[in-house]
Amino acid sequence: MKIIFRLGLLFLVCSCSMTSYKTEKINGVSFVASRDSINDTHIKPLLNIHANYAAIMPFGFIRELSHPEIMFNTERQWFGERKVGVKQYVESLKKHHISIMIKPQIWVRRGEFTGGIKMTSEADWKVLEDSYSKFILEYAKVAQEVKAGIFCVGTELETFIDNRPNYWKELIIEIRNVYKGKLTYAANWNEYDRTPFWSQLDFIGIDAYFPVSDEQTPTVEACRLGWLKHKPTIKAFSEKYNKLILFTEFGYRSVDFAGKEPWRSDRDMNVVNLKAQTNTMQVLFEEFWDEPWFAGGFVWKWFHNHDKSGGLRDDRFTPQNKPVEAMIKAQYFK
């Protein structure tokens, strides 16, 4: 009887141990900052799709790609882009058991790509470093205060990182001194493999706008073939650093050629194609969500006023009130 009891106890311990390694996927949305505060009405649609995480995105602004000073947390900004808004959003979402990633972002005037931020002198690089440190450490303190589950140290800043790698490595140490949760960086899809500080972070963050199909309406089969060019490299990268991959942004526009250059937000791409959006999203879910080396991700993007967002005539990224929303709901329910 003692032998049977001990075997039973051993089985129970092993079972509990194995269970502890199973982690819930991050089924997230990129929650867009607005002019207004949010309430339960704005959160209910997130609960309806079974989202368990939201990325909250305060903004800093730069006048041009070579300008070194970041303006942030000013009265001229929208409520959700400032500290007061971040705290209100987080407090409201956490009441409904939605976890938080705080993901501060830079906006360059006229919407120029942040990856191109580059200074023309050593003096300006120093000013930019000082300005960015103030910006990111301010929100790292907020993340610690509100007990955010994840903090993102930057988004798509490849040229800044390429030119100043030592600054970034030292900055992450400073952030660790302020914020005690999990860290990631949102690398652009064609940047992550040369980002030099993954060993200092907890997740390998990728904004997953990988090209997967040149077809006008990408088929499921074409998209699956398209991922063969990228997925093995992503998996190998996870294994190299022994860290989970997190899609800090993922999604497709509801337009023709949605899988060709998924990062494009050009207004001249305006032919609505809902099937293109659902097919590309379906394959992304099928290829990644069951992988043990994949942590999950954040749909780009989700607006607070659900009833007035997206819709069958909308050609933008948001899945709201489109067929792909039901697909996300089904996936997140799993």
Rank of each mutant, 00 (worst) to 15 (best):
F333A: 13
L284T: 14
S309M: 02
E138K: 03
V86E: 01
I102Q: 03
R82Q: 11
E261V: 14
V86I: 04
S66Y: 11
R109N: 11
F247T: 06
Y132R: 01
Y53C: 03
T184H: 05
S254F: 00
L10S: 15
S213F: 08
K329R: 13
V283I: 14
F250I: 01
D266N: 13
L246I: 08
Y132G: 06
S99M: 01
L7P: 10
M327I: 09
E174K: 15
N188M: 05
L46S: 05
L46V: 01
N73V: 01
D40V: 08
K243L: 08
F5K: 13
I136K: 04
L47V: 10
L171D: 10
E112N: 08
W107Y: 12
E287A: 08
Y53R: 01
A258L: 01
V90S: 08
E64C: 04
D130M: 04
V127C: 02
P218E: 05
H96A: 05
G259E: 12
M327G: 10
S131T: 11
E174L: 07
R76D: 15
D162T: 14
Y139D: 03
W289Q: 00
V84H: 07
K87T: 10
L246V: 11
A236I: 00
K260Y: 15
K87R: 07
Q105N: 12
Y192W: 12
R316V: 08
E145F: 01
F31H: 09
L246G: 12
A54I: 01
G115Q: 10
Y241K: 00
